[in-house]
Each structure stands twice: as C-alpha cells, then as structure tokens.
Design a binder for these strands. Structure first.
Lengths: 244, 244
DNA sequence: CGTTAGTTTGATGGTCCTCAAGCACTGTGG
DNA sequence: CCACAGTGCTTGAGGACCATCAAACTAACG
C-alpha cells in the first residue's frame, strides 16, 4: 500500500502505533461504505439515536449543542481522520448535532463492522480507543480555554491546536493551514461573539502573530504565538503510548 | 446481598442495567483493595503516569488542570460511585490532577483486574462504558455552561446537575444535598471568581431559588430553578440504553 | 489568642456583549 | 447589465457583566 492510498485516519494512527500490514488492511476495509454530505445540513440531530458512526475522510464537520435561547456552543470540529459519533454507536447517546461545514466525504461504519474489526485486531481497538481518548483530552483543554483564558489567548491556543491536528494528518504545516471556518464558527466554538472574534483576529494580525484571511490561517510568528497561548501540545502528542 | 452492602457504583449501574447475581459479585470484587486519602493532597499529579484507577466509595474528589499563570480549572467533581482515572489506565494519559476535597475512601482497581472482569462479564464492560460515556456527556454540558450561560444560570445548572448525580447514588433528594465544596471550588469549576460566586449565591438565595450554606445545598424552589437554568436532565438519564 | 480558611460586602474598572451601520463579494433574476 | 438579496467581514459607541483590589467578619483550631 502506497502512502497516497492511505486514509487520514490510517495516517494518524500510524504516527503513534506501528501497524502491521494485516491491521492496515482491516483498517482500510472499514472505509468501504463511502458517503457524501452537503454543507450546512445536519447529519445527526440532537436527541436522534444514531446507529452508525463515520470516519471523516475529507472536509470539516462541527459538533454542537443548541440551547433553548438559540445560542450555540460548538463542542469540537472534526477534521479528516476523525471519528464522528463513535460514542453514540457503542452506547446510544447522540446528545449533540453534527453539521458539515463544507461538502464532506465520510465512510460509514456500522457497529457490527467495528466490533468485528476489534475482535480480529485487538491492537487496532487499542489504537482507536487511543484516538477517542485524545479527542476527550481536547474537549477538556477546550473547557480550560473557555473557563480560564482571555479571548486573545483562547483564540491563539485554538488555532495552534487546529494546526497541530491538521499537521498530523498531512493537511497543514508549521506555517499555517487552510481553514473553511467563518468567524461565526470560531465565535460559537470559543464562547465569544462574532464581533469580538473579529477584533481579536485583528489584534493577533496587527501584532504579527497569526493571520486568518481568505480561508487560510498563517502563523506569522509561531514561537511568540505559542508563548502568548501558553500552548503545550503534550495533550495532543502523547508520544507513543501504545505498543512497539 | 442486601442493599446496605451495595457500593454506590453498584447502585448507580443497577439503576440502568439489570445486573445478575454473578455480575454483581464480580463488580463487588473490584472493590477489594480499599484505600484512603486525606483531603487536600493530590492523588495523581498532572503529567504523572498512573497505573491504577479508583472507584470512589466515600467523599468528593476534584479533577483539575493548573495553568502556567496559576489559574485553575476544575474539569469535574467525582462523587461516590464515580470512576477516577479510568481513561489514564486504559491508555496512559493523566493529563490532569486529582485532589480529594475531603478525606475519601476509594477502591484501587488494577488494569489487569478490570480487564479480567470485562472478559468474564461482557455486560459489565458495557455498563461501565456507559458510565464513562455519561461522564463525558457531563463534561460537554459543562463546556456549554461555561461558554454560553451567564453566571446565574451556570450556577443553577451546576447545582441541579450535582443534585441529580447524588440522588442517583442515594446521597441526595429533590430538596437538596450535603456539599463539602467551598465557594473557591465552585469558582474554579464554573470559570468565575470566588467573589462573584458569592454574589451569585446570594442572588439565588434572595430569589428563593436555592440556598448554599454550612455545607448543604437546599433547593427552595426546584421548579423555578430548573426554569432559570433551562436544565434538561436528558444527558444524565439516558433511560435504559442497555440490555434488558 | 493569634492564625488560617472561608465568607461577605463595597468600589472601581476592564473585557467583552449588544446595537447599529457600512463594506465587499457572490449569486440571482429582471 | 444592473438591481437586489444574502453572506461574511469590519468598525464604532455604549453598557452589562464580571474581575480585581481592599477590607471586615466569622468560625475552627492549635
């Protein structure tokens, strides 16, 4: 199997676990049922009980909760290589909604397929659990950001995290990444108003730290940005927690 | 086995799954290695790699992250019946610290014991995964609270959630519960200053909604409090997702 | 009886929200 | 071709919410 054929998920897991040929094959086989979804229409609704999970292979998705007063909190963005609704499959708890931000490509994974793959390849199960645990750690870090960082550091930290996540699946580098989010998305993720997001982005740009413009995030001074955000990627790396 | 002997964890799981005698026995056997910890001294430090998890049987614990500037964000409180460090055992990711709020009693669970119990009793594994997923849903709801609710609703919601959780393990009722937290704990959990926590509590008390005094939370008007917080316990109940 | 931890209240100010409005760009239909 | 609406970005003014600083008070404890 050449690297060009590899799915983003494979790429992500391979960065942390030395997977055998057989395991790679089973992993790729999970990607068989390809599905497309158009931007803006919810894939899964809050309260709905989903019977399938998805592996995102192209595009971005947001998972969010809507409150009675109409305000929205985006819990996380999914990028290529991420699982989507994994929790809701193992147990049936779709407590939030999923909305594609752009047109996306995803592989549908039935519960039975997943369990079968786990039974066949236990190390694969561990690897996927590792990925799930990493997602959870990101939500926790997100909580810390909203609770205890001011708008500037919160934005800086979030952009750095997105950059690291994308780099891991080959969609970005230290100098920046393509980003289809609007300022409204960022506002709903960071617990800010869209207007303040705009001001914060201007500040960061004028300070020569990071530029977000025309669907592209550019890190103008990575080092100083890390300093401002007090960004410690330990919760993302977890270098080699698993196997070999 | 009489109900008086049941651990809080057993009680919690039993509320959602009809466990057999054999399963109950295995579950109780996990509680063998009893440990005590004194209030205020961290059980696990951020960054430390833990090799054991704990089932809390008495007392309260806070899990939190400290930032470089000294501010603290409490991610969650653990109450009797809750797992502690489950994630860090399956994968080794102790990305936050655990501090007992009062002197506590806990059962140490070795990875091997846990895996063995899972192998023996698969339904037990499902039940425990359900509990873990519920914890995750609570963190998400917490995120929504900090991101999109003002201080009053945030406090009201949090107290209601704690009340529901405690009721599930028999430690509280609709009219209130014993609560060893200080206003500083609440501040660090809710992303507020301790001073503002005090003012918010006063407001809630003077509005006749809820009273927090002398280590006891009393719901003075449960219905109106639920309305103010827009508290929807769906994410806690998940009535019978499992089995039978 | 001094110390410490926790609670309470007041005064002041900053961060961020809300309201309001203008601009740029895109696609649509007359 | 141009009017028009829709979406997203940008900027200004005023104000609310909550943080910070300061200090008094209570209770527990050695």
């Amino acid at each position: 199997m050449t690297s060009a054929e590899q799915s983003p998920l494979t790429r992500k897991l391979a960065a942390f676990v030395a997977l055998t040929e057989a395991e790679l094959a089973v992993l790729e086989r999970l990607h068989q049922r390809r599905r497309s979804f158009v931007a803006g229409r919810d894939m899964v609704h809050q309260g709905q009980s989903a019977q399938a999970a998805y592996i995102l292979s192209a595009g971005w998705v947001s998972s969010y909760k809507i409150q009675a007063d109409g305000t929205r909190q985006i819990v996380d963005f999914q990028i290529p290589g991420d699982f989507l609704g994994l929790r809701s499959v193992l147990l049936r708890t779709s407590d939030h909604s999923f909305e594609p931000i752009v047109d996306i490509e995803a592989a549908e994974v039935l519960t039975s397929d997943l369990l079968e793959a786990f039974a066949q390849m236990p190390r694969l199960a561990t690897a996927i659990l590792w990925a799930a645990s990493r997602d959870e750690a990101m939500v926790v870090e997100h909580l810390v950001g909203i609770g205890r960082r001011d708008a500037l550091a919160r934005m800086a930290h979030y952009l750095l995290e997105l950059g690291s996540r994308l780099a891991l699946v080959g969609l970005g580098r230290k100098d920046g990444f393509d980003c289809p989010l609007t300022q409204y998305h960022l506002a709903d993720a960071l617990g800010l108003s869209a207007i303040h997001v705009n001001r914060v982005l201007r500040q960061l740009r004028e300070a020569g730290l990071v530029t977000f413009r025309d669907g592209r995030v550019t890190f103008d001074d990575y080092g100083r940005l890390v300093g401002l955000a007090e960004f410690d990627p330990a919760y993302l790396d977890q270098s080699g927690p698993l196997l070999k």
